[in-house]
């Protein structure tokens, strides 16, 4: 995960899977010993913490990996006669958890143990605690006070804990602050962009994100925001929010949609859409060769897999020379048996 980046996840219709994604992000912070900041207007932060998934211990995870590796090579060679292109896929890449890059797997059927939570350094922002219900808003200010207060809260944590390098005492031990903001821009934040097409505070959200981006760029922190974009009526705001984020991913759940019964998607619970990938400090972005991803929720884990392979069009494909082509068809014909017997060229 890119340090100093702003990642916004566009929520699925009911917010089930995006909350899970946020929990993974926070749990990874707790396990890695990072400081964690959580902001929410709907759920009490303490209850979110208590609900974080429990990590699988290293031994079990390793065993899982090796057993997967053990069984896959032999069986794959035998079985993949038609979908032969899938054979060249790296085996582990197809099962990649969002946070598994550091080697942690979680069991979402259990919650994290209290000792582990206690050892983590956490900060929280719960809107109803800050502003009493029934409080009046000053509509003339540049940002609704909620966003401004959230910003000030984040800024004070960053400043006091020395993430911006201002506190010289902690220079030796560099740590990272993980900020998770749940359902930003929903009506509970006192913002009306979900309620009206021409809201009063048309720029409050984008101003907040710009300031947040400024804070992240000048400190050792990374932020994940989940946002109910399907509720925002004014599409212009969504485009601007995407422009202000470094990474944008969308979760499209199949719950209640026609796709639920489509046989293509029968193994999955939703699509994982990548709208924007970060380009920090470089001209090119680190693009994988496919962006068609789907996710599924198993009993114990949430996994993101590639939906299908991209069309084959690269420098290194076998089409580049006739000889290679002939070679590959030979291989093919032996693989496919009697159906493709003879030395006929197969055209795709």
């Amino acid at each position: 995960m890119e340090e100093r980046g702003l990642i916004s996840a566009e929520e699925d219709d009911y917010g089930t899977y995006s909350n899970l994604l946020l929990k993974y992000f926070l749990a990874e912070g707790v396990i890695s010993g990072h400081e964690v900041f959580i902001a929410s207007a709907s759920n009490i932060p303490h209850s979110i913490f208590k609900d974080l998934p429990a990590p699988l211990t290293d031994e079990i995870a390793k065993q899982d990996d090796t057993s997967k590796l053990m069984e896959s090579p032999g069986s794959a060679e035998d079985t993949m006669k038609i979908a032969w292109r899938y054979q060249n896929l790296p085996k582990l890449e197809s099962v990649s958890l969002p946070s598994a890059r550091f080697g942690h797997y979680y069991d979402i059927s259990k919650t994290m143990s209290p000792d582990m939570l206690q050892s983590a350094k956490t900060h929280s922002f719960y809107l109803p605690n800050i502003i009493p219900l029934g409080g009046t808003y000053d509509s003339s200010s540049e940002m609704p006070c909620d966003y401004l207060q959230l910003l000030q809260s984040i800024q004070s944590v960053i400043h006091q804990q020395g993430f911006d390098g201002s506190n010289p005492q902690q220079k030796g031990q560099k740590n990272i602050l993980r900020i998770g903001i749940q359902s930003l821009a929903s009506v509970l934040w006192g913002d009306d962009i979900c309620a009206r097409e021409r809201p009063h505070n048309l720029h409050s959200l984008t101003r907040f994100l710009y300031a947040l981006r400024g804070l992240l760029r000048s400190s050792l922190s990374v932020c994940v925001i989940t946002m109910p974009t399907h509720l925002i009526k004014n599409k212009a705001i969504i485009a601007r929010v995407r422009n202000l984020s470094d990474t944008v991913v969308g979760l499209e759940s199949f719950i209640g949609s026609e796709r639920e019964s489509n046989p293509l998607y029968k193994d999955y619970h939703g699509l994982f859409l990548v709208h924007k990938i970060p380009r920090l400090n470089s001209l090119i972005s680190d693009a994988s060769d496919t962006k068609d991803l789907a996710f599924k929720l198993k009993r114990k884990m949430f996994s993101i897999e590639r939906l299908h392979l991209p069309p084959d069009l690269s420098d290194t494909v076998s089409r580049s020379s006739k000889q290679d082509l002939a070679g590959s068809t030979k291989l093919l014909s032996s693989g496919c048996g009697s159906a493709a017997a003879g030395k006929k060229h197969l055209d795709f």
Binding site: Q155, Y210, A211, G214, L215, R217, S218
Partner: peptide, 11 residues
């Protein structure tokens, strides 16, 4: 640097 100037303006 707009990002820096804006956070300075706010904080």
């Amino acid at each position: 640097e707009g990002l820096r100037s804006y956070t300075q303006l706010l904080f």
